[in-house]
Design a protein around this nucleic acid. Structure first.
Lengths: 237, 237
DNA sequence: ACGCTTATGCTACTTAAGTAGTATTAAACT
DNA sequence: AGTTTAATACTACTTAAGTAGCATAAGCGT
């Protein structure tokens, strides 16, 4: 919270949506609203009140945003958030309660600010509302493609796309989702553990991936890519 | 486009998100960017270029926003837009191309403006960026609940919810979707014509609805409500 | 080292949803 | 009026996904 910390955070958040195009003066007045918090792995935010009254920027670690069905048996992960992501954008945008849960997949560092303070700052600096728009647009597009993927595409293809989407270009291996259980992978594509496992076995057998406890590794990227092409062709016969 | 028209449009658009909290001066300068267009029923906007360069506010009539799968066989309707709705919000927010189609379900009147002019106006009046946020938030919430509905809920329940959501409190009958074909209803919940028909037959047989060509009518609302309760309980056994 | 918890792998089974095809009917269009 | 088009109703079939259950293995905490 001290001056040095604020400047440091500014540096860390160079690609956070809220801080684009801010001169140092505005950045400083904005960051003064925030304080740093550290949450241990597996921390859950299930109290939606907290989301209405606080706003968070992730400095490090992964946070999944998810929903649970009426009887608490099924889950679906809506977003896997990480550095420079913010939440809860829904509440910031319209001020309403948002029936959604958050869980830390790692130890997570965030900047936290009272929602009202942030709103006040934005009202005082209305030109920075603009910063939120591209980020909101990106999230809308992600939700939109989630809808069309679920309605058009089978689980095997959705799983393939999930894997390929999370391959790091340099390392040619998985990132972000490399250490998730099959259950968590299933929730990311709106399916169940057993079904995802079934398809992972298939990929394992053709030598494209290696599966160990809480770990999926890419063995042969080209097989996965070819497989995706084939599956998308098959659907159009 | 003449002065009288502009004022009239202001009146018509009293609940359009873009015009909230605008004084008459700002409203007039904003509306000057727009001109009125009338599109015949079944007009399609399949050229995504147009969406990047123009922005529309619906004055009357219904417009569905939908996506088509890779081989053009399946469809899913993402939004059913009507008076005071705007499009394409995605493009306005982030300026990117949006792979989505629009089709007029009625004769549709819109106000149209060049996207760049609108962006220019918003940059000149940054405090009105704020007006977009609650609307964007609402659309995000709709997409979010679309995702969770599709992953958690069976077609029969989704269809029930679709019907109940579109019952007018006063008339106690359907609006917005009352004159859609089973195919269109199916696309609204991410399913197919044959399956929706199957469930509608079920509802018909218990006396809750009446089905004729391009028309679904509510016969007994209480049956539908009870049915929804039962189905949601069953899932939690 | 031990037991507890959680993840994985796999078999067998169930089911809702999708698919194909076709007859019938209603509306729209010369 | 007659032709064409599109919507509805219904039967039979296929299939992917979900479900249940269990054995094995990995990792964690004490």
């Amino acid at each position: 919270m001290e001056g040095a910390g604020i400047l440091q955070n500014r540096y860390h958040l160079n690609s956070c949506v809220l801080l684009n195009y801010l001169d140092d003066k505005d950045a400083q007045s904005l960051l003064k609203l925030f304080h740093e918090e550290v949450w241990t792995k597996n921390t859950c935010i299930i109290n939606s009140e907290k989301l209405v009254y606080h706003f968070f920027i992730i400095l490090s670690g992964r946070v999944k945003m998810y929903q649970v069905d009426n009887n608490g048996e099924k889950e679906v992960t809506l977003f896997l958030l990480s550095r420079n992501d913010v939440f809860d954008l829904f509440c910031l945008l319209d001020g309403c309660k948002h029936d959604v849960y958050y869980e830390c997949l790692d130890e997570v560092k965030v900047l936290a600010a009272p929602m009202e303070d942030l709103r006040g700052w934005l009202n005082a600096h209305p030109q920075h509302y603009k910063n939120l728009l591209p980020y909101a647009g990106r999230q809308m597009r992600m939700l939109e493609s989630y809808v069309s993927d679920i309605t058009f595409t089978d689980i095997s293809t959705r799983l393939l796309k999930l894997l390929l989407k999370n391959v790091n270009d340099k390392s040619r291996n998985l990132e972000m989702i490399h250490d998730l259980s099959h259950k968590e992978l299933a929730y990311l594509i709106g399916s169940t553990r057993a079904v995802v496992n079934r398809h992972l076995q298939k990929f394992k057998k053709n030598g494209s991936i290696k599966v160990t406890r809480n770990k999926v590794e890419i063995k042969d990227l080209s097989i996965l890519i070819k497989l995706l092409e084939i599956q998308q062709q098959q659907r159009s016969i």
